[in-house]
Amino acid sequence: MKKKLLLVTGVVLVVLLALFGRDLLGLYRLQDYLDTTTQAYEAEGPWPQTADACLACHGKQGSSLHQRYPSLAGQPADYLKTQLHTFASGQRMNPNMQPLAMSLTEKQIFELSDYYARQPALDNHGFDPDPALRAQGGKLAAAGACMACHGEHLLGQGPFPRLAGQGADYLLAQLDAFAEGRRTDPSGSMQAISATLSPADRKALAHYLASLATAPK
């Protein structure tokens, strides 16, 4: 009986596959995708989560393909926390981030910073650096001793952000903001360094940093 039933089920399946094969397979794969993504999502807690609101600009697990919106993945938690606090206080200016940061509780700020710090930093494949600018940027980075604060591979540490693989347009916008005094850092070093760089130098640095690997060999 069991055998017969299995046989019938098999026959029905074959007929269905012949008729709706593509559709059925598509549906099966969709269901499978839903299961996998739901499982991965719930590993961080139940739906919905605060970080949902960050996805549009900062990307899946904090890696943005958009060169102007920064990737948060692998950023030091200290750095992220400080940025959310300074956005909320108005010390760091950004019309989109400021009101958003103001609406977050301390607990949410802690959780978001912790979450993004734990996500794997990915290389910036979406960016195609200019080879000459990249080489020039490399020299400037060495001369400017970026590694002293941002770490040996510029992956960030403590209050200093990861620069390797960050969005090129974002990096340039920050260097410009430091140079023009629109963004400040507690020690004033970024302002001092950026002010000595010409606009062309800043662009070269952005090309170099954006194309740096996030998992150096």
């Binding site: 839903l34 299961d35 609101a53």
Partner: peptide
């Protein structure tokens, strides 16, 4: 509020999308 309504996993993405389009942010915020 939605979490209290027992939204099924397959429907969550729909709510995320529709709130993002209509309200500018997913349901969480």
């Amino acid at each position: 509020w939605l979490a209290r309504q027992g939204i099924k996993p397959e429907d969550r993405s729909g709510w995320d999308t529709s709130l993002t389009l209509t309200g500018g942010v997913p349901p969480a915020r």
